[in-house]
């Protein structure tokens, strides 16, 4: 039982890392990785929303779509669920904890368009995870996303002082770095 869940977690964090192995959520990965502090804010917000959204989308699928025979509507309804969860989170955080809102606030709306969130929700259904598994899978995916985002941000801060040739400056060298990282993460293949 415990082993099953830890395998699920390690699989989602390292072996099938959502960014570097499954290539989901690349827009925030490239867009919010210029500074380490913003990357940390983004990863905290994403972890929170992804875990919540994967649980909510599982509930939506099992208790609304399946009884009504509307499984083919899952993509569009998950988008709706994610948008609602993000909006709801924003409202709750703003009223209950202004400090947290100031840290996460800017990043919350961005998460709606993070394809990793939708990806996790759909993969949970494809892999026929139960509720707890969906929750863990979402949490693992978020941890894996946060890990590479934060490491990548620290590396990009160092790259800003590198003598990169003109054609490779900026996003280009970021892409090259992400590609090399993806190669390195292939080393985890087979662990789970």
């Amino acid at each position: 039982m415990l082993a099953d869940y830890s395998i699920l977690l390690i699989g989602a964090i390292l072996v099938n890392n959502f960014v570097l192995v499954q290539f989901l959520g690349l827009c925030p990965f490239m867009g919010v990785s210029n500074k380490l502090e913003t990357a940390m804010g983004m990863s905290m917000a994403t972890t929170f929303v992804l875990t919540l959204a994967s649980a909510c989308s599982y509930l939506t699928y099992t208790f609304i779509l399946q009884p009504l025979g509307l499984e083919y509507l899952r993509t569009i309804s998950f988008i709706l669920v994610i948008a609602v969860v993000v909006q709801f989170t924003e409202m709750v955080v703003r009223k209950s904890s202004p400090l947290l809102y100031r840290v996460l606030g800017v990043y919350l709306p961005l998460i709606t368009t993070n394809c990793a969130v939708l990806g996790v929700a759909l993969l949970n259904i494809n892999k026929s995870h139960n509720f707890l598994q969906s929750l863990f899978y979402g949490f693992g995916a978020a941890l894996g996303f946060s890990l590479v985002l934060v490491l990548f941000a620290a590396m990009r801060e160092r790259l800003t002082v590198a003598d990169v040739p003109a054609p490779f400056q900026g996003a280009a060298i970021g892409m090259v770095t992400a590609g090399l990282m993806s190669l390195a993460f292939m080393g985890f293949a087979g662990l789970v």
């Binding site: 380490l36 934060v150 490491l151 990548f152 620290a154 590396m155 801060e157 160092r158 090399l180 990282m181 190669l183 390195a184 993460f185 292939m186 080393g187 985890f188 293949a189 087979g190 662990l191």
Partner: peptide, 27 residues
């Protein structure tokens, strides 16, 4: 990676992964 992974030796992968993490460790 040596014991549970798919690849014959792991030093290269381990070094690359930690190269990636080095700026964060320094921070």
């Amino acid at each position: 990676i040596r014991v549970w992974g798919n690849y014959p030796d792991a030093v290269a992968f381990a070094v690359l992964i930690m190269n990636f993490a080095a700026p964060f460790i320094d921070y």
